[in-house]
């Protein structure tokens, strides 16, 4: 087990290298100069552009820049923003917001997705099942940009005008309630996928031989479905939730921008506008690390959930 974890972490190194190299290349290929982008409409004083270029090594070849970055990464240094703030410090302040948002989304996703899926499967072929399929189709089809703004208008503005102030229109000034709408918007399409996965999983599990055995043992339907079927379905569900953590992290870029949440995702969006190369690369590297760790945790959970899998 311990050896397995170490091996997986070693395997993560080339993934991190590849991801950082790729994102460096993309940022390098962006047209325009970061120094000029920062100055805005007025332009830079003469000489300033050259100074900035030299200080941030913007003139050097791509691979040299990347080498400097990697050297810093090994020392635990994610680089410094153009304003002189270490990227690591910048992230620390924003990380909590993103964690709150993603955890909210995961909980919403797990509860709504599994709930909808089980409901549909247990009424397989009926009107309620068709309704579940219809709802998930809508959730998959409508992009977060649309659901975000529509819900902001309906729940954040209209509902608030009607006297129910549960959902703030944006920001985190009202604490946890500020995460409810963005959490749902972030999770929306994932809810649909999870619901369909759950529905198909339960339908398949109910056809399995061990379910027939469980019925033949004289167990109640509640025990047959809730214990014997559900316990076997957990494996694909946990896999999906783990992999989806990465999707949710990526989705924060849009959701945090729509709802004006000061998290890592909005930081990434802002830094792309400003061509803040160290921030872009640092943020993406960080997201890649979170994704790798989440997948490792999921793989370790397999061994707990499925006794046929052993990590040796």
């Amino acid at each position: 087990m311990g050896r397995y974890v170490v091996r997986r972490l070693i395997q993560a190194i080339p993934v991190v290298l590849g991801a950082t190299l790729l994102i460096h290349a993309v940022v390098f290929a962006l047209p325009g100069s970061p120094a000029v982008a920062r100055a805005g409409a007025d332009g830079l004083p003469p000489g300033a552009a050259a100074l900035l270029r030299e200080h941030y090594r913007l003139g050097e070849p791509f691979l040299v820049q990347y080498g400097h970055y990697l050297a810093g990464l090994f020392r635990g240094d994610l680089g410094v923003t153009f304003a002189g703030v270490p990227v690591a410090d910048l992230m620390a302040g924003r990380f909590q917001v993103t964690v709150n948002l993603v955890v909210t989304a995961l909980v919403v996703e797990a509860v709504a997705g599994v709930g909808l899926g089980l409901y549909g499967a247990l009424r397989y072929g009926g009107a309620q099942d068709a309704l579940v399929l219809g709802v998930t189709l809508v959730l998959i089809s409508v992009p977060a940009l649309v659901t975000g703004f529509v819900l902001q208008l309906l729940l954040g503005v209209r509902l608030r005008q009607a006297g129910v102030g549960l959902f703030p229109v944006a920001g985190i000034a009202e604490g946890w309630r500020g995460y409810l709408l963005p959490g749902f918007v972030l999770a929306a399409s994932s809810i649909a996928y999870l619901a369909r996965l759950t529905r198909a999983g339960l339908l398949e599990a109910l056809r399995a031989g061990y379910i027939r055995t469980a019925v033949a043992k004289g167990l109640s339907r509640r025990r047959v479905v809730g214990l014997h079927a559900l316990r076997n379905m957990l494996i694909p569900l946990i896999t999906y939730l783990g992999a989806d953590l990465g999707t949710l992290m990526g989705g924060t870029v849009i959701t945090e921008t729509i709802f004006n949440l000061p998290g890592v995702g909005r930081q990434l969006a802002d830094s792309i506008h400003l061509r803040e190369q160290p921030v872009i690369v640092g943020t993406v590297t960080f997201l890649v690390l979170v994704y790798i760790l989440a997948n490792l945790v999921v793989d370790l959970l397999y061994a707990v959930l499925d006794p046929r899998i052993r990590h040796e």
């Binding site: 031989g209 061990y210 027939r212 033949a216 109640s220 076997n232 006794p307």
Partner: peptide, 25 residues
């Protein structure tokens, strides 16, 4: 009926591997 099932009438299936639940001892 379910009280009788398993206690007064019991059944053994053809393929014990698929008839046993893989995730319980």
């Amino acid at each position: 009926r379910s009280r009788i099932r398993g206690s007064r009438i019991a059944m053994i299936f053809q393929d014990a591997l698929s008839a046993l639940n893989p995730v319980f001892t």
